[in-house]
């Protein structure tokens, strides 16, 4: 059996097929055996994000119909943000803050800058979509929110993930919707709420998930319940649709994923492009 080297002539013809031909071929090396309930558990991330989007749209709808007053939304969201801020530090005992080196003062500065700018620009933001028809606005918002869900960083390491882009799409959608409201104050409130929900909440979410598994499960259930009840109060048909969608997402799709693993047929060998497993973000920005 000849060695597979090119610098030595083995005397055999060039097209000789030796017994160790394709001996390094491996099949389905990276096929993972999924456990159904762990997949269901992990799918909670998607459920939570969907829940966030639904809550946001619901808040907008309530402000549009006048049920929700801007000041109520503003104070409640601000309170929740403070709570979340406190939890963020408490959860890992302050190690995260020490690592990143951000002071409380810098955080306060960011908040103040953001609030003042948004407040100052809210009349302008209000008039941005005046002349655009409502249908276009709704279509654009739907498109943007779908995009947000698509590009969101759910924790998987895929090429399609772009957290910056998903945040931008969400804020864009919020500006579109906010400009339809009654006055600049409404706009300001909704945009602030959108920022807190789409930018700050995922940070806390990730931390909670890392810290304790039970928390994550509880949160998923909480989100689902809140969304369904709120929708039920507003539009029962939507609530029914939401229930179906959540069931699909949480139970049926994981089942399908597990079943599809049987059909996987991957070929691996020395010809594969090597994967870089190192974390080069420190070097490469």
């Amino acid at each position: 059996m000849a060695r597979k080297v090119l610098y030595e002539r083995s005397g055999l013809p060039d097209n000789h097929v030796s017994r160790n031909f394709l001996e390094t071929l491996r099949r389905n090396v990276r096929v993972r055996k999924y456990s159904y309930w762990s997949v269901v558990y992990e799918s909670g991330v998607v459920t939570q994000q969907l829940g966030s989007v639904c809550i946001f749209v619901l808040c907008w709808w309530l402000m549009e119909t006048g049920t929700l007053v801007p000041s109520q939304l503003f104070t409640s969201s601000l309170a929740l943000s403070f709570l979340g801020y406190y939890l963020y530090d408490v959860i890992d005992g302050g190690t995260g803050r020490r690592c990143s080196g951000r002071t409380r003062l810098a955080d306060l500065k960011s908040v103040l800058i953001f609030l003042s700018f948004t407040y100052g620009l809210s009349p302008l933001l209000k008039t941005l979509t005046e002349t655009i028809s409502t249908d276009t606005i709704y279509a654009m918002t739907t498109f943007m929110l779908l995009g947000h869900l698509l590009f969101f960083d759910y924790g998987a390491n895929a090429a399609i993930v772009s957290s910056g882009l998903s945040l931008n799409m969400a804020l864009f959608a919020s500006v579109c919707l906010a400009s339809r409201l009654a006055g600049p104050l409404h706009t300001f409130t909704l945009i602030t709420f959108a920022c807190e929900l789409f930018a700050l909440w995922p940070l806390l979410q990730k931390k909670l998930k890392k810290q304790s598994t039970g928390c994550h499960g509880m949160l998923t259930v909480l989100f689902a319940v809140v969304v369904v009840t709120a929708l039920a109060m507003v539009a029962p048909a939507c609530a029914a649709l939401a229930i179906v969608l959540l069931f699909l997402l949480s139970f049926l799709i994981p089942l399908w994923l597990v079943k599809l693993q049987l059909y996987k047929d991957n070929i691996h060998g020395p010809w594969d492009e090597a994967e870089i497993k190192d974390d080069l973000s420190g070097v490469l920005h």
């Binding site: 090119l6 097209n15 097929v17 394709l22 071929l25 070929i267 010809w271």
Partner: peptide
Amino acid sequence: ENTALRAAMPPGRISVI
């Protein structure tokens, strides 16, 4: 090996030069 798998060609027809 790679070409034989990709092109579904019998390896006897592929020479290594």
